[in-house]
């Protein structure tokens, strides 16, 4: 399915999503929902929830529910000490929304959480999309509060002119969120053999997407998932960096939407190639 992204006004992306919240003690988990169809729960990266053209396009096919992970926004998260604990809390939050089974899309840090959720609750997932996931980070160069802004932008975005443009991290938010992210991620080896073993037994249908110019997590990390997970596809998005949803939103939403809708049948095109009858 290909729609013209120009239909989507980037200045009003947030308006497309309806805010809501659910209580998972001790947190009030906020979420932003748009669209109809099978639920697609979205876990954001370390920068917090972001509205993208890609998500707006996916909301034309699915009920997109973008969760704000506890520890982001105004809330400090001293409760969860591991990715697994956080993943469990998110699974509870989604269940509290009345969503029993859903597609799950996790970006970067959110991808690491999503993978843990898939390991713990495979029966709840229709399928899993890991967008530049940070679970395995072999040779990764994580962003730091003192990173040079232009260099950081280039590592996130290969197509910096594409709207919405890259937002530099907000120092006040960083002060709260990055230690939390670092605590959960840096406590794991860049290649965590324990979690790799668990993923070997995770048969959730999974798509791993990496921008081929990802400057944060080398896209070669994508091979790990493809190799060890029994039901996993790997796609490189050409001309995209770490924020692939923003660099190439049409391509991202096409391949992800196809995978969610058609599963492995996304390997064969179903659109007619007839020029004229």
């Amino acid at each position: 399915m290909t729609t013209n992204a120009d239909d989507i006004d980037v200045t009003t992306l947030a308006d497309r999503f309806t805010p809501g919240s659910v209580v998972v003690d001790p947190f009030v988990v906020e979420y932003f929902a748009a669209g109809d169809g099978d639920p697609l729960v979205v876990l954001h990266g370390a920068g917090g929830p972001e509205f993208s053209i890609a998500l707006a396009r996916l909301a034309q096919r699915f009920r997109v529910v973008l969760l704000q992970i506890p520890g982001f926004g105004d809330q400090v998260n001293d409760v969860h000490q591991s990715l697994e604990e956080l993943a469990d809390a998110i699974a509870h939050a989604v269940a509290a929304m009345g969503i029993e089974r859903y597609h799950l899309l996790g970006t970067s840090f959110g991808g690491a959480v999503a993978a843990c959720l898939a390991i713990a609750h495979p029966d709840r997932l229709l399928s899993l999309v890991l967008d530049a996931p940070a679970l395995f980070r072999v040779d990764a160069v994580p962003p730091a509060p003192d990173s040079d802004p232009s260099e950081l932008a280039a590592r996130f975005r290969a197509n910096p002119d594409r709207e919405p443009r890259f937002s530099q991290p907000v120092p006040t938010a960083n002060a709260q969120q990055w230690p939390f992210v670092e605590k959960l991620l840096s406590s794991r080896a860049e290649y965590d053999t324990g979690i790799a073993e668990k993923l070997q037994n995770c048969s959730v249908r999974t798509l791993v997407v990496f921008g081929d110019r990802d400057g944060i997590i080398p896209p070669s990390n994508g091979r790990i998932y493809r190799r060890i997970m029994p039901n996993c596809a790997l796609i490189y998005l050409y001309g995209a960096a770490h924020a692939a949803q923003f660099d190439r939103p049409e391509a991202f939403s096409d391949v992800v939407g196809d995978f969610l809708e058609r599963g492995w049948e996304f390997l064969i095109p179903h659109e007619s190639t007839m020029i004229n009858p």
Binding site: L267, I268, P269, E271, T273
Partner: peptide, 14 residues
């Protein structure tokens, strides 16, 4: 048909 992205439903006509 799972290699180069060829529509198998149109295989015969193509």
């Amino acid at each position: 048909y799972l290699t180069y992205g060829t529509n198998p439903w149109e295989s015969r006509e193509r």
